[in-house]
Computed example of a mutant assay.
Amino acid sequence: MENRPEITALLSLSIKMHINPTNDPRVYWAREVTFDYATSSAVRVDFMKFKPVNNTVSGIEKGDFYCYEVKSSVEDFHSKNGHNFLGDFNYYVMPEAVYEKVKAEIPYKVGVYVPEKMNYRGAWYDLKSVKKAKRADRERPVSEMLLMMFRSAARERVVK
Rank of each mutant, 00 (worst) to 15 (best):
E2T: 11
K131P: 01
T39W: 00
C67T: 13
Y91M: 01
N54T: 03
M145V: 04
K117D: 15
L146W: 00
K117A: 13
S129E: 06
N3R: 11
Y66T: 04
R26Y: 11
R44P: 04
T22A: 09
K16P: 01
P5A: 07
I7H: 04
Y28G: 02
A97E: 15
K103D: 09
Y108I: 12
M118D: 09
L147K: 09
E156A: 12
R26G: 10
Y92L: 06
V158M: 10
R157M: 14
K103G: 07
F150N: 00
P21V: 03
V130D: 01
H78P: 01
V33H: 00
H83L: 14
K16S: 11
G82D: 13
E61Y: 09
N23S: 10
L13R: 08
D24T: 04
D24S: 05
A123H: 05
S79D: 15
S12R: 08
R31V: 00
T8N: 12
K62T: 10
W124N: 10
L146H: 04
P95V: 05
D88N: 15
V110P: 05
Y120D: 14
P95C: 07
R44I: 08
A38K: 08
S79H: 08
P21D: 07
A9S: 12
Y99E: 03
G122E: 09
V114D: 06
